[in-house]
Nucleic acid binder design. Structure first.
Lengths: 115, 115
DNA sequence: CAGCAGTATTCCTTTTAAAACATACTGAAA
DNA sequence: TTTCAGTATGTTTTAAAAGGAATACTGCTG
């Protein structure tokens, strides 16, 4: 009798826009952490990511979405911060809904993979 | 009236095994090119990939599949070559079937993405 | 037994991406 | 008008991955 390894299917989704990949799980995590911490700086720390990169991702998202997903507050009490716009909140929801549907479907389709 | 950008959903699937990602579209292409050209060398050329890397991918596939996906012929007329095993042929089929099902489903679920 | 073409394998260079560093700028509040 | 924490941005360093070069091996064939 031959060996019986276990294989599973993995699915990754992201949103494409005219200029290429627009929104995947990485940016979604960033959005969530911005919402949670109130700033890009702290979100980046939370994710052990450089502020610089986090900031660039936010810039890109805001430019390529129809309206900004993150509102940035410059200067003032506490130096400022960042928070999600309505569109930002919706983006998270939409993404996870889509992801769940597709992954559930994929799991259902997977039985007895052999290689 | 506001801008109306077009967003689409993209899906990528791959097969996981105990030690992590096992088989994705890249290795599938390699398998196809080996089948088409009869050798790893020519498959690599076709894909503008270094022989070295192609060879490593084949090694990995063969080790982690229950049985080898590629049969390698060493020396002899024409120096040898490589061809797919039954399991290799089946892997390609299985992968594309799964991919098509899931992508079709994803496309159906996508209407009117807004960000 | 020399030639050949592809496999097998090591080593070194190059490219690229990520991370780290540095430094202005902003504006509310004490 | 100085402090402060976060945003904004350029530069440099480092690390990792990709690529290329070189060499040995294999076994049929003329």
């Amino acid at each position: 009798m031959e060996e019986n390894k276990k294989y599973t299917i993995a699915v990754r989704i992201w949103i494409e826009e005219a200029d290429g990949p627009f929104l995947g799980i990485g940016k979604i995590w960033l959005l969530e952490n911005i919402a949670k911490t109130g700033s890009i700086t702290n979100a980046a720390k939370e994710m052990k990511m450089a502020y610089r990169q986090a900031w660039q991702l936010v810039e890109e998202m805001n430019k390529r979405a129809e309206k900004p997903l993150v509102e940035k507050l410059l200067g003032g009490k506490g130096g400022g911060g960042a928070r999600l716009t309505e569109a930002g909140e919706r983006a998270i929801q939409t993404f996870y809904e889509l992801e769940k549907k597709i992954q559930d479907f994929a799991r259902k389709e997977t039985l007895n993979l052999k290689f």
